[in-house]
Write a protein that binds this DNA or RNA. Structure first.
Lengths: 358, 358
DNA sequence: CAAGGATGAAAAATCGATTTATCGATTGGG
DNA sequence: CCCAATCGATAAATCGATTTTTCATCCTTG
């Protein structure tokens, strides 16, 4: 029945006005808290609002303003904990200020990213929080500049000449990982990542390399990266191991790399940390319940989201001035997947029932 | 600079009209594909649109219609793969039909769920895809009914007297899990879950129990559930093991339970499947790269999303008729975490370097 | 007591589109 | 040759708010 009942037109501001015996303009003023309304009339308006269950239509309300109370959020994906938390946080912060958050996934495509942005521009959003697929130099940011949109770039960015940026301090966190691994005696370390075009991936790589070599110039660092998708990375890694390379530790620059590494370890029957150590950028809930628990760099999602929204609203309110580039500190969680090289019984996969795949 | 430049007012339909030398009404008709426009004028309109880069303002365009081209989506959370994928799918499907998806997280709170719904009602959304926190009898669905909103309920629902529902066939999947576990010889099985008030959790429980007992009436099934949060579940589980209960398999009715189970196994130094077997409802990417890989029930996210959207749009377009209740089949992925009871070396936690916690 | 100022509210314009009503021109039929 | 139907397009109303303008009162003050 609910598909026909009760769907009478909702009361408009004019309905409230006539019930209260005043004009629509007066109702609007009362609701906006303007003080030039006689208290008696104000009360009658509030009573009518109450009686009719009137609520402002945000769409109509936004019609006249150039910047509508809508914030757009564009993330490369929704499937990971990181971006899921990010959207949750952004939504809460937007709501606190009376804004509606419209979130969309670019699905790791720059083309789609730009299309979404164009649609958000059609909506005349007040601002956009963009987590670009690659970095701050993509077509999406260019579109925003060309159209004078207000926005903040987050996550896979370092700094920009037009927009404020907020991201995790990848370089510092990677340096800390380097200190820990080198401190444990690792001398042959493999770094795996995706898309060196991504600003932060490069920062993570260089942050690690610089620190590791500073601590011990004899450290041997291999790097395997691949553009775009994760499968090329998997096969490169497979080839790398197949030709006999035996690093004692792997540092993955992103979550998907950590999964690939684990799956290749499995394939070869290697166990952490006895056979090889593993640290990944990006933490996930499951990493602390597996055996071994996986060491990871935790990104400060809440801080990034909150700082991004602060900066964004400052711009929405008209602040002009040079863009800022913020880096929020990460936390490195050392867990069981990291040990000292050669300290454990170097199994060939013998202590589990599952034999290594050929 | 982008904070001031280029933000001239966007061209409106009147700008297009005057450039094309016609009226705004004509422009609107051309863009709507009405055929009563002289081809010559239509061409001039299209030229002007092209030249000015005109795009319809969706907000203004929606003003006059009772149902706006906006679909609301309310999920209990965004942080899990399941709901992340769900939002991604829903967004794509809405976009295909020219609708904007506004997604919000109820953060597992029924109060928040209702507030979000009220806000979406203010927006006069054409329809809502609601994944309720508990089940179809919560305040949110009641609100939708009371206000004559159009909607579809998904995930934690079975059927409703007012709204179409779409969910995974939990009972069938659980029965299949039962067949597999009983088939492997398990005679003492623990089921853990959250909130038996949730319709689907109950269905999963009963689906499993009925099938298991039908196959082997001597099977002993224990059940541990807790309302609301995950921590009570953890401590109940801990107590259960502490008092000497030794089921040979655990079936978790939801993802968080699977994580709790793994973490308690860790704590006691038990390994799957030698010491205990584990199957969880809800798959996740990491489950196939850990050692052992975790057996799981995969929910058909795409089918649920697509069916929900189909049903929703049918209602939006005015279809009346009794609500339907769809159940989409799941897939059960048996992985290494499941074995036969007593088949492996029953370790006390001896083959890993980490000693069991006291 | 009249001019000027302050006060509070109503009327009207506006935002940008869609839709309905209206109007002029062309064409056809009687 | 005139009225009517048809076609194509424009003017105007509408959606639901906000904001500016106008207007009527009342109060001060010289």
């Amino acid at each position: 029945m609910a598909h026909q009942g009760a769907q009478q037109r909702r009361p408009s501001i004019h309905d409230v006005a006539s019930h209260a015996g005043v004009s629509a303009a007066t109702v609007s003023k009362v609701l906006a808290g303007v003080s030039t309304v006689k208290p008696e009339n104000a009360q009658r308006v509030l009573d009518a609002v109450e009686r009719l269950g009137y609520r402002v239509d945000p769409l109509a309300s936004d019609m006249r303003r150039a910047k509508r109370r809508i914030i757009g959020a564009i993330m490369p994906e929704f499937e990971s904990e990181f971006f899921g938390q990010m959207v949750t946080e952004l939504e809460g912060l937007a709501e606190q200020r009376g804004y509606t958050l419209v979130a969309a996934s670019s699905r790791e495509s720059e083309a789609r990213e730009k299309e979404i942005l164009a649609r958000m521009h059609d909506w005349r959003v007040a601002g956009v929080v963009l987590a670009p697929v690659r970095n701050e130099h993509g077509p999406a940011a260019a579109f925003m500049k060309a159209n004078g949109m207000t926005g903040v770039l987050i996550d896979r960015v370092l700094s920009d000449d037009a927009f404020d940026t907020v991201s995790a301090d990848s370089a510092a966190a990677s340096a800390e990982v380097a200190r820990m691994l080198v401190g444990k005696g690792h001398k042959h370390i493999l770094i795996i990542g995706l898309a060196e075009g991504a600003a932060t991936v490069r920062a993570r790589l260089e942050g690690f390399r610089a620190q590791a070599l500073a601590l011990d110039p004899s450290v041997h660092i291999d790097v395997i990266t691949s553009e775009v998708s994760v499968e090329p990375l998997r096969s490169s890694l497979r080839d790398y191991f197949a030709r006999g390379e035996r690093p004692t530790a792997v540092y993955s620059l992103l979550l998907k790399g950590t999964l690939v590494a684990l799956s290749e370890f499995r394939r070869r029957g290697w166990h952490c940390p006895n056979d090889i150590s593993l640290v990944g950028f990006d933490d996930a809930e499951w990493m602390q319940v597996t055996w071994p628990a996986i060491a990871a760099v935790v990104q400060p999602v809440r801080q990034i989201a909150s700082e991004a929204m602060n900066l964004l609203f400052r711009r929405v309110e008209g602040l002009v001035g040079p863009p800022t580039a913020r880096l929020e500190p990460c936390q490195v969680l050392m867990r069981e997947s990291v040990g000292s090289p050669g300290s454990g019984p170097h199994s060939g996969g013998g202590d589990r029932q599952q034999p290594p795949l050929s």
